[in-house]
């Protein structure tokens, strides 16, 4: 094996060749009393070492559910993976029995949640919750685990870490709590870090600090990072690749540079228009009109059609597949080229 990484997680024989993380045609549905909500409908993406992949989309587009399926922490019932694969260095995690899969959590793939207050256990000290990673996964003694914990809290820049290890989550500010979540998630030096809207619940001033911390840690440790957000502004500086999700499907996939230069999907275009930009100062922000579809009744044809200013008859009849429209650029729109080249600029909006 060509790898020298210390991670003790099991490896399949072809680990060297396989990508770090590969989500392949993933399908997830929620079976509730109100019907079957198809939350993820054939999502595929690949993440490499050191890459930051941003998953972008309005609330309810299936970003978190995709992440939960990768982690194996879906609420089951009502949530079920109905198809696809999640391969970590070639090993399909979805095929593993629970006990084997557990070995990957925290150690190979770790996750940070949006709301650190509710995601931390209210009745245990934060140091205890971080140290638990060392004690359970590595069998460290209380004393050693505590030393590592203080160290880690220093690394995520929590002031007076040694004095604060025994404090409880509610005694910290929102930003500090998110740092504790981050410390916990990187404790075992994971290869993949999933951050699900890590700054959404925070003050604007704190948001930048947390994003910087995440970016630094990611670079230092060469982690693959999946950054979930509904805020295009957040990702511009840190992401390499962007996946735009809508209605449980990838609508556009491209490098940050390409997407900011010119979107190749009307939905991306709408998202871009809804963020404040320095060069367009004074112009009114336009949110995309309408609402995302009900996931129990996704319309025929293109999912975005009811809200799309460019929709034609073909959009009604045929669902556009995600196709490569330029090297490294993918779009699920019948008129991707036209959108990309701005030929639709005169369409009514």
């Amino acid at each position: 094996m060509a790898t020298t990484e210390p991670s003790a997680a099991p490896r399949p024989p072809d680990a060297g060749a396989a990508p770090l993380l590969e989500v392949d045609d993933l399908h997830v549905e929620f079976r509730t009393r109100d019907g079957v909500a198809k939350a993820v409908n054939g999502v595929s993406y690949t993440l490499s070492e050191g890459e930051t992949l941003a998953v972008l989309g309005e609330s309810g587009s299936g970003k978190s559910v995709t992440a939960q399926a990768i982690m194996g922490i879906l609420d089951t019932p009502p949530g079920y993976v109905t198809g696809g694969a999640v391969r970590f260095r070639g090993q399909d995690l979805l095929q593993l029995p629970e006990e084997e899969r557990r070995a990957y959590r925290g150690r190979s793939v770790a996750m940070i949640f949006q709301d650190a207050l509710s995601s931390l256990n209210p009745v245990f000290p934060v140091g205890w919750q971080i140290a638990e990673m060392f004690r359970v996964h590595e069998g460290l003694s209380k004393k050693d685990a505590r030393a590592r914990t203080v160290d880690l809290m220093d690394q995520v820049r929590i002031p007076a870490a040694r004095e604060r290890v025994n404090d409880y989550p509610h005694q910290f500010s929102g930003g500090m709590r998110q740092r504790i979540m981050i410390a916990m998630s990187i404790a075992l030096d994971p290869d993949v870090l999933i951050a699900d809207e890590p700054t959404t619940a925070l003050d604007v001033t704190v948001q930048a600090q947390i994003m910087n911390l995440l970016a630094d840690l990611q670079r230092e440790r060469n982690m693959g990072m999946i950054l979930i957000t509904h805020d295009l502004g957040v990702v511009a500086d840190v992401a390499d690749t962007i996946e735009v999700m809508y209605s449980g499907r990838i609508m556009e996939q491209a490098s940050v540079h390409d997407i900011y230069g010119a979107p190749a999907h009307p939905y991306t275009e709408g998202l871009l228009r809804s963020i404040p930009r320095v060069d367009l100062k004074g112009q009114e922000l336009s949110a995309i009109k309408g609402l995302p579809p009900n996931l129990s009744r996704i319309p025929e044809g293109c999912e975005f059609r009811p809200r799309c200013p460019y929709a034609q008859q073909i959009c009604h009849d045929t669902r556009p597949p995600l196709l490569e429209i330029a090297p490294g650029r993918f779009s699920a729109c019948h008129f991707a080229q036209e959108v990309l080249e701005g030929d639709f600029d005169n369409a009514e909006q």
């Binding site: 922490i73 925290g106 995601s119 256990n121 209210p122 990673m133």
Partner: peptide, 9 residues
């Protein structure tokens, strides 16, 4: 927080 505990492995 229970989901977190599961995600922590």
């Amino acid at each position: 927080y229970v989901r977190t505990a599961t995600a922590k492995g």
